[in-house]
């Protein structure tokens, strides 16, 4: 059967499996590696991970769906995660999220039709001193305001 994961990714999964007494422990890291390549966890990608670690596909899918960072379907080129937990809530994350929804024309959990941005409302990002805070892909943006949202979206490709 044809593999969707590239040989380098499969090799990385084999390397990860060596780091644990039981290869199954490498499941989360392997799913991260698969998602990094594909963009989300397609059935084909999960099948490759399952084969690489000697697990049933159903087990892999069961685990993958438990964790919020694993995507069951395609996501945008950029991911914006807005913290909505207490400290951010008290400091106006609602306004930030509203502004993003308005400018992008989507609601939290949705992706813009052009595939540019996926917007998520997420739980505490452990950066409460920077409230309201959000992640744009891997970068944290502190003390967000509506104006900062405008500026940021303007610079995002």
């Amino acid at each position: 059967m044809e593999r969707v994961l590239r040989p380098a990714v499969l090799a990385e999964i084999s390397r990860l499996a060596q780091l644990y007494a039981h290869p199954r422990s490498a499941l989360l890291p392997a799913l991260h590696a698969a998602q990094d390549q594909v963009g989300y966890l397609s059935e084909a990608a999960m099948t490759d991970v399952a084969d690489a670690l000697g697990l049933p596909v159903s087990e892999v899918a069961s685990v993958a769906t438990f964790y919020s960072m694993f995507h069951p379907g395609p996501v945008g080129r950029h991911q914006i995660r807005v913290c909505t937990n207490l400290s951010c809530y008290l400091n106006g994350c609602g306004e930030v999220l509203d502004r993003l929804c308005g400018l992008l024309g989507i609601r939290p959990g949705e992706t813009t039709p052009d595939g540019r941005v996926t917007l998520e409302a997420v739980e505490c990002l452990a950066a409460c001193e920077e409230a309201p805070v959000m992640l744009v892909d891997a970068d944290r943006h502190p003390r967000m305001t509506s104006a900062a949202v405008d500026d940021l979206l303007g610079r995002l490709d």
């Binding site: 919020s68 807005v82 909505t84 937990n85 809530y89 008290l90 106006g92 994350c93 609602g94 306004e95 999220l97 509203d98 929804c101 609601r107 939290p108 959990g109 998520e120 409302a121 997420v122 739980e123």
Partner: peptide
């Protein structure tokens, strides 16, 4: 009023 605005249902 400002602080009480819930940031979307469920909030992720």
């Amino acid at each position: 009023a400002a602080a009480a605005q819930a940031p979307g249902p469920g909030g992720g």
